[in-house]
Simulated assay, not measured.
Amino acid sequence: MKPGIEWRQPRASAEQRQFAADLHAALARAPKAISPKYFYDETGSRLFEQICDLPEYYPTRTELALLQAHAADMAAQFGPQVQLVEYGAGALRKVRLLLDAMPHDGVQFVPMDISGPHLLAACDGLAVDCPGLAIQPLVADFTRPHTLPPCADGSRRVGFFPGSSIGNFTPAEADAFLRLAAAELKGGGLLIGIDLVKDAHVLHAAYNDARGVTAAFNMNVLERARAELGAEFPSGGFEHLAFYNPAYRRIEMHLRATQPLVLRLGDQSYMFNEGETLHTEHSHKYTVSGFQALAQRAGFKPGKVWTDANQWFAVLWLEAS
Protein backbone atom coordinates (compact mmCIF):
# COMPACT_ATOMS: atom_id res chain seq x y z
CA MET A 1 0.00 0.00 0.00
CA LYS A 2 1.50 3.32 -1.06
CA PRO A 3 1.73 6.29 1.35
CA GLY A 4 -1.07 8.80 0.97
CA ILE A 5 -3.71 6.25 -0.07
CA GLU A 6 -6.44 5.84 2.53
CA TRP A 7 -8.14 2.45 2.89
CA ARG A 8 -11.29 1.54 4.76
CA GLN A 9 -11.49 -2.23 5.13
CA PRO A 10 -14.51 -4.21 6.35
CA ARG A 11 -13.98 -7.04 8.84
CA ALA A 12 -13.40 -10.24 6.86
CA SER A 13 -15.38 -12.34 9.33
CA ALA A 14 -18.43 -10.13 8.89
CA GLU A 15 -18.10 -10.41 5.11
CA GLN A 16 -17.94 -14.20 5.32
CA ARG A 17 -20.96 -14.31 7.62
CA GLN A 18 -22.89 -12.23 5.09
CA PHE A 19 -21.79 -14.54 2.26
CA ALA A 20 -22.93 -17.57 4.26
CA ALA A 21 -26.28 -15.99 5.12
CA ASP A 22 -26.90 -14.98 1.50
CA LEU A 23 -25.90 -18.40 0.18
CA HIS A 24 -28.21 -20.18 2.67
CA ALA A 25 -31.05 -17.91 1.53
CA ALA A 26 -30.18 -18.53 -2.13
CA LEU A 27 -30.21 -22.30 -1.73
CA ALA A 28 -33.43 -22.32 0.30
CA ARG A 29 -35.52 -20.33 -2.19
CA ALA A 30 -37.19 -21.66 -5.30
CA PRO A 31 -35.81 -21.17 -7.85
CA LYS A 32 -32.33 -21.02 -6.32
CA ALA A 33 -30.52 -17.72 -7.06
CA ILE A 34 -27.69 -15.65 -5.59
CA SER A 35 -26.29 -12.17 -6.22
CA PRO A 36 -23.46 -11.97 -8.79
CA LYS A 37 -21.45 -9.78 -6.40
CA TYR A 38 -20.06 -13.01 -4.90
CA PHE A 39 -18.17 -13.67 -8.13
CA TYR A 40 -15.70 -10.98 -7.18
CA ASP A 41 -13.22 -12.33 -4.69
CA GLU A 42 -9.55 -12.09 -5.70
CA THR A 43 -9.78 -15.15 -7.99
CA GLY A 44 -13.05 -14.06 -9.54
CA SER A 45 -11.78 -10.55 -10.17
CA ARG A 46 -8.72 -11.96 -11.93
CA LEU A 47 -10.87 -14.27 -14.06
CA PHE A 48 -13.12 -11.37 -15.04
CA GLU A 49 -10.09 -9.44 -16.26
CA GLN A 50 -9.29 -12.43 -18.50
CA ILE A 51 -12.89 -12.46 -19.78
CA CYS A 52 -12.57 -8.82 -20.76
CA ASP A 53 -9.71 -9.70 -23.14
CA LEU A 54 -11.46 -12.65 -24.83
CA PRO A 55 -12.22 -12.28 -28.57
CA GLU A 56 -15.87 -13.24 -28.02
CA TYR A 57 -16.43 -10.69 -25.27
CA TYR A 58 -17.23 -7.48 -27.15
CA PRO A 59 -18.41 -5.17 -24.28
CA THR A 60 -14.98 -4.29 -22.87
CA ARG A 61 -13.21 -3.52 -26.14
CA THR A 62 -16.25 -1.62 -27.46
CA GLU A 63 -16.53 0.53 -24.33
CA LEU A 64 -12.77 1.10 -24.26
CA ALA A 65 -12.89 2.31 -27.84
CA LEU A 66 -15.67 4.76 -26.94
CA LEU A 67 -13.67 6.05 -23.97
CA GLN A 68 -10.51 6.38 -26.05
CA ALA A 69 -12.36 8.34 -28.72
CA HIS A 70 -14.49 10.54 -26.46
CA ALA A 71 -12.78 10.76 -23.05
CA ALA A 72 -12.18 14.50 -23.36
CA ASP A 73 -15.82 15.15 -24.26
CA MET A 74 -17.00 12.90 -21.42
CA ALA A 75 -14.69 14.55 -18.88
CA ALA A 76 -15.90 17.97 -20.04
CA GLN A 77 -19.35 17.08 -18.65
CA PHE A 78 -17.85 16.75 -15.15
CA GLY A 79 -16.43 20.23 -14.67
CA PRO A 80 -12.92 21.20 -13.46
CA GLN A 81 -13.12 20.34 -9.73
CA VAL A 82 -14.63 16.91 -9.00
CA GLN A 83 -14.76 14.00 -6.64
CA LEU A 84 -14.89 11.09 -9.10
CA VAL A 85 -16.52 7.99 -7.60
CA GLU A 86 -16.13 4.75 -9.54
CA TYR A 87 -18.70 2.12 -8.60
CA GLY A 88 -17.37 -1.45 -8.83
CA ALA A 89 -13.93 -0.13 -9.73
CA GLY A 90 -12.10 -3.44 -10.29
CA ALA A 91 -8.80 -3.09 -12.16
CA LEU A 92 -9.17 0.69 -12.81
CA ARG A 93 -8.48 0.08 -16.49
CA LYS A 94 -11.21 2.23 -18.05
CA VAL A 95 -11.13 5.11 -15.61
CA ARG A 96 -7.50 5.79 -16.53
CA LEU A 97 -8.71 7.05 -19.92
CA LEU A 98 -10.96 9.58 -18.17
CA LEU A 99 -8.25 10.56 -15.69
CA ASP A 100 -5.82 11.19 -18.54
CA ALA A 101 -8.30 13.76 -19.89
CA MET A 102 -8.63 15.53 -16.52
CA PRO A 103 -6.31 17.81 -14.50
CA HIS A 104 -5.18 15.63 -11.60
CA ASP A 105 -4.79 18.56 -9.22
CA GLY A 106 -8.56 19.12 -9.43
CA VAL A 107 -9.62 15.48 -9.01
CA GLN A 108 -10.33 13.50 -5.87
CA PHE A 109 -10.67 9.85 -6.99
CA VAL A 110 -12.74 7.41 -4.89
CA PRO A 111 -12.70 3.89 -6.40
CA MET A 112 -15.19 1.60 -4.64
CA ASP A 113 -15.17 -2.20 -4.85
CA ILE A 114 -16.18 -5.21 -2.78
CA SER A 115 -12.84 -7.02 -3.39
CA GLY A 116 -10.29 -5.29 -1.13
CA PRO A 117 -6.99 -6.92 -2.18
CA HIS A 118 -7.76 -6.55 -5.89
CA LEU A 119 -8.75 -2.90 -5.46
CA LEU A 120 -5.68 -2.01 -3.40
CA ALA A 121 -3.32 -3.61 -5.91
CA ALA A 122 -4.93 -1.59 -8.70
CA CYS A 123 -4.67 1.61 -6.62
CA ASP A 124 -0.98 0.99 -5.98
CA GLY A 125 -0.36 0.83 -9.71
CA LEU A 126 -2.42 3.96 -10.36
CA ALA A 127 -0.56 5.87 -7.63
CA VAL A 128 2.77 5.10 -9.34
CA ASP A 129 1.49 6.25 -12.73
CA CYS A 130 -0.40 9.31 -11.42
CA PRO A 131 1.64 10.65 -8.47
CA GLY A 132 -0.34 13.89 -8.28
CA LEU A 133 -3.73 12.19 -8.03
CA ALA A 134 -5.56 12.06 -4.67
CA ILE A 135 -6.78 8.44 -4.34
CA GLN A 136 -9.13 7.32 -1.57
CA PRO A 137 -10.16 3.68 -2.17
CA LEU A 138 -13.28 2.49 -0.39
CA VAL A 139 -13.84 -1.25 0.12
CA ALA A 140 -17.62 -1.53 0.20
CA ASP A 141 -20.72 -2.95 -1.48
CA PHE A 142 -21.91 0.10 -3.40
CA THR A 143 -25.49 -1.23 -3.55
CA ARG A 144 -25.74 -1.00 0.25
CA PRO A 145 -25.51 2.04 2.53
CA HIS A 146 -21.97 3.44 2.54
CA THR A 147 -20.23 6.68 3.44
CA LEU A 148 -18.19 8.52 0.82
CA PRO A 149 -15.34 10.85 1.81
CA PRO A 150 -16.37 14.51 1.91
CA CYS A 151 -15.87 16.50 -1.28
CA ALA A 152 -13.10 19.07 -1.35
CA ASP A 153 -14.23 22.70 -1.21
CA GLY A 154 -15.63 23.85 -4.54
CA SER A 155 -15.88 20.31 -5.93
CA ARG A 156 -18.93 18.45 -7.14
CA ARG A 157 -19.37 14.69 -7.00
CA VAL A 158 -19.67 12.65 -10.19
CA GLY A 159 -19.99 8.90 -10.63
CA PHE A 160 -18.51 6.46 -13.14
CA PHE A 161 -20.15 3.05 -13.60
CA PRO A 162 -18.67 1.34 -16.67
CA GLY A 163 -18.85 -2.19 -18.02
CA SER A 164 -22.65 -2.43 -18.36
CA SER A 165 -22.67 -3.74 -14.77
CA ILE A 166 -26.08 -2.11 -14.31
CA GLY A 167 -27.36 -4.97 -16.47
CA ASN A 168 -26.63 -7.42 -13.64
CA PHE A 169 -29.39 -5.82 -11.60
CA THR A 170 -33.07 -6.69 -11.80
CA PRO A 171 -35.22 -3.76 -12.92
CA ALA A 172 -36.10 -3.08 -9.27
CA GLU A 173 -32.43 -3.25 -8.22
CA ALA A 174 -31.41 -0.97 -11.11
CA ASP A 175 -34.04 1.55 -10.02
CA ALA A 176 -32.83 1.35 -6.40
CA PHE A 177 -29.19 1.87 -7.40
CA LEU A 178 -30.00 4.79 -9.68
CA ARG A 179 -32.02 6.45 -6.93
CA LEU A 180 -29.14 5.96 -4.46
CA ALA A 181 -26.67 7.36 -7.00
CA ALA A 182 -28.92 10.32 -7.87
CA ALA A 183 -29.06 11.23 -4.17
CA GLU A 184 -25.32 10.99 -3.42
CA LEU A 185 -24.29 12.57 -6.75
CA LYS A 186 -26.74 15.46 -6.43
CA GLY A 187 -25.31 18.55 -8.09
CA GLY A 188 -23.08 16.39 -10.32
CA GLY A 189 -23.92 13.42 -12.48
CA LEU A 190 -23.24 9.85 -13.55
CA LEU A 191 -21.33 8.48 -16.56
CA ILE A 192 -22.61 4.95 -17.14
CA GLY A 193 -22.09 2.17 -19.69
CA ILE A 194 -24.99 0.02 -20.93
CA ASP A 195 -25.05 -3.01 -23.21
CA LEU A 196 -27.59 -2.60 -26.01
CA VAL A 197 -30.09 -5.08 -27.42
CA LYS A 198 -28.52 -7.03 -30.31
CA ASP A 199 -28.42 -10.35 -32.17
CA ALA A 200 -28.72 -13.32 -29.79
CA HIS A 201 -25.82 -15.18 -31.46
CA VAL A 202 -23.41 -12.37 -30.57
CA LEU A 203 -24.62 -12.50 -26.96
CA HIS A 204 -24.39 -16.30 -26.73
CA ALA A 205 -20.78 -16.33 -27.91
CA ALA A 206 -19.80 -13.60 -25.42
CA TYR A 207 -20.93 -15.69 -22.44
CA ASN A 208 -19.85 -19.14 -23.71
CA ASP A 209 -16.23 -18.53 -24.73
CA ALA A 210 -14.21 -21.31 -26.32
CA ARG A 211 -11.50 -21.22 -23.63
CA GLY A 212 -13.99 -21.78 -20.80
CA VAL A 213 -12.92 -18.71 -18.83
CA THR A 214 -16.52 -17.60 -18.26
CA ALA A 215 -17.37 -21.10 -17.08
CA ALA A 216 -14.52 -20.95 -14.54
CA PHE A 217 -15.69 -17.49 -13.44
CA ASN A 218 -19.19 -18.85 -12.90
CA MET A 219 -17.96 -21.93 -11.02
CA ASN A 220 -15.85 -19.73 -8.74
CA VAL A 221 -18.95 -18.91 -6.69
CA LEU A 222 -19.08 -22.51 -5.47
CA GLU A 223 -15.30 -22.84 -5.23
CA ARG A 224 -15.30 -19.75 -3.04
CA ALA A 225 -18.06 -21.28 -0.89
CA ARG A 226 -15.98 -24.43 -0.52
CA ALA A 227 -12.82 -22.54 0.45
CA GLU A 228 -14.34 -19.85 2.71
CA LEU A 229 -17.42 -21.54 4.15
CA GLY A 230 -16.56 -25.24 4.04
CA ALA A 231 -19.34 -26.05 1.58
CA GLU A 232 -19.39 -29.66 0.39
CA PHE A 233 -20.62 -30.88 -3.01
CA PRO A 234 -19.52 -33.57 -5.47
CA SER A 235 -16.63 -32.81 -7.80
CA GLY A 236 -18.04 -32.30 -11.28
CA GLY A 237 -21.52 -31.95 -9.81
CA PHE A 238 -22.21 -28.62 -11.54
CA GLU A 239 -21.69 -27.19 -15.03
CA HIS A 240 -21.80 -23.72 -16.56
CA LEU A 241 -24.97 -22.70 -18.37
CA ALA A 242 -25.50 -19.34 -20.14
CA PHE A 243 -28.25 -18.39 -22.61
CA TYR A 244 -30.22 -15.39 -23.89
CA ASN A 245 -33.77 -15.05 -22.53
CA PRO A 246 -35.60 -12.85 -25.07
CA ALA A 247 -38.67 -12.43 -22.85
CA TYR A 248 -36.57 -10.44 -20.37
CA ARG A 249 -33.96 -9.13 -22.84
CA ARG A 250 -31.20 -10.63 -20.75
CA ILE A 251 -28.42 -13.19 -20.69
CA GLU A 252 -28.82 -15.63 -17.81
CA MET A 253 -25.96 -17.54 -16.17
CA HIS A 254 -26.63 -20.61 -14.05
CA LEU A 255 -24.76 -23.45 -12.37
CA ARG A 256 -26.64 -26.60 -13.42
CA ALA A 257 -26.52 -29.86 -11.46
CA THR A 258 -25.20 -32.66 -13.67
CA GLN A 259 -26.74 -35.31 -11.36
CA PRO A 260 -29.00 -35.52 -8.31
CA LEU A 261 -26.83 -34.24 -5.46
CA VAL A 262 -26.68 -32.69 -2.01
CA LEU A 263 -24.83 -29.45 -1.26
CA ARG A 264 -23.93 -29.15 2.42
CA LEU A 265 -23.38 -25.72 3.95
CA GLY A 266 -22.81 -25.51 7.69
CA ASP A 267 -25.44 -27.71 9.34
CA GLN A 268 -27.84 -27.49 6.39
CA SER A 269 -28.21 -29.79 3.38
CA TYR A 270 -29.74 -28.64 0.10
CA MET A 271 -31.03 -31.05 -2.56
CA PHE A 272 -30.49 -30.50 -6.27
CA ASN A 273 -32.33 -32.56 -8.87
CA GLU A 274 -30.46 -33.34 -12.08
CA GLY A 275 -30.74 -30.27 -14.30
CA GLU A 276 -31.75 -27.96 -11.45
CA THR A 277 -29.81 -24.71 -11.36
CA LEU A 278 -28.43 -22.03 -9.09
CA HIS A 279 -29.02 -18.76 -10.96
CA THR A 280 -25.81 -16.75 -10.53
CA GLU A 281 -26.16 -13.77 -12.87
CA HIS A 282 -28.28 -12.02 -15.44
CA SER A 283 -27.20 -9.28 -17.80
CA HIS A 284 -30.03 -7.09 -19.06
CA LYS A 285 -29.72 -5.43 -22.46
CA TYR A 286 -31.23 -1.97 -22.96
CA THR A 287 -32.23 0.50 -25.60
CA VAL A 288 -30.87 4.02 -25.09
CA SER A 289 -34.32 5.56 -24.81
CA GLY A 290 -35.52 2.84 -22.44
CA PHE A 291 -32.58 3.32 -20.10
CA GLN A 292 -32.89 7.10 -20.19
CA ALA A 293 -36.52 6.75 -19.12
CA LEU A 294 -35.46 4.48 -16.23
CA ALA A 295 -32.81 6.99 -15.14
CA GLN A 296 -35.23 9.90 -15.41
CA ARG A 297 -37.71 8.17 -13.09
CA ALA A 298 -34.86 7.74 -10.59
CA GLY A 299 -34.05 11.46 -10.54
CA PHE A 300 -31.54 11.97 -13.35
CA LYS A 301 -31.78 14.23 -16.39
CA PRO A 302 -30.55 12.52 -19.61
CA GLY A 303 -27.54 14.16 -21.25
CA LYS A 304 -25.06 13.26 -23.98
CA VAL A 305 -24.83 9.73 -25.43
CA TRP A 306 -21.89 8.03 -27.15
CA THR A 307 -22.39 4.79 -29.16
CA ASP A 308 -20.25 2.61 -31.44
CA ALA A 309 -20.85 2.10 -35.16
CA ASN A 310 -22.53 -1.29 -34.58
CA GLN A 311 -24.87 0.18 -31.96
CA TRP A 312 -23.78 -2.61 -29.60
CA PHE A 313 -22.86 -0.45 -26.61
CA ALA A 314 -23.54 3.03 -25.25
CA VAL A 315 -22.06 5.36 -22.65
CA LEU A 316 -24.53 7.87 -21.21
CA TRP A 317 -24.11 11.07 -19.23
CA LEU A 318 -26.87 11.63 -16.67
CA GLU A 319 -27.20 14.93 -14.79
CA ALA A 320 -28.05 14.69 -11.08
CA SER A 321 -29.28 18.26 -10.75
Score class of each variant (00 low, 15 high):
Q136M: 14
N208K: 09
D105G: 11
A247V: 09
A69R: 15
F300L: 08
I166D: 04
Q16C: 04
A298F: 07
V82L: 11
S235Q: 11
L84T: 04
G303V: 03
F160H: 11
G167T: 02
D100H: 09
N310F: 10
A127D: 03
R11C: 08
A30K: 11
A242V: 02
Y248L: 10
T62Y: 14
I114E: 03
E232H: 08
W306C: 11
H104K: 10
G106S: 11
T43C: 12
A20D: 07
E42D: 13
L255K: 01
L120H: 14
A76D: 12
L196W: 04
P302C: 03
A91K: 13
F291S: 05
I51D: 12
L27Y: 00
A26T: 00
Q136V: 13
D41Q: 10
W312E: 10
K32I: 02
Q77G: 01
V85R: 08
A172G: 00
R61T: 13
N208A: 07
P171A: 04
V110N: 00
S289T: 14
N220W: 03
Q311K: 09
F142C: 12
E63L: 02
G193Y: 01
A205I: 06
N208F: 08
A242Y: 05
R144W: 00
T307F: 02
L190Y: 03
S13V: 10
M102T: 07
H284S: 14
S155T: 12
K94L: 06
I114Y: 04
F39T: 03
G189R: 00
R264M: 01
N245E: 15
L263Y: 00
V95E: 03
I51N: 14
G159Q: 06
H204V: 09
S115A: 15
D267E: 15
C123Q: 01
K32M: 08
A183E: 09
D105W: 10
R179G: 09
F19L: 12
L66M: 08
Y248V: 09
K186N: 09
Y40Q: 04
L119G: 09
K301R: 14
C130D: 10
F272G: 00
G266S: 05
A72H: 13
K32T: 01
D153I: 11
D209T: 06
V139N: 04
A26L: 00
R250D: 07
A182L: 06
L178S: 05
H254I: 03
A309Q: 15
K2Q: 13
T43F: 06
L66I: 10
L203Y: 06
D267I: 00
G188E: 06
P149L: 12
T280D: 06
V128S: 13
K37V: 05
L203M: 06
A172E: 06
T287Q: 11
F39H: 04
A30P: 01
T170W: 04
H146F: 15
G193H: 01
D22T: 03
G163L: 10
A205S: 14
G90S: 12
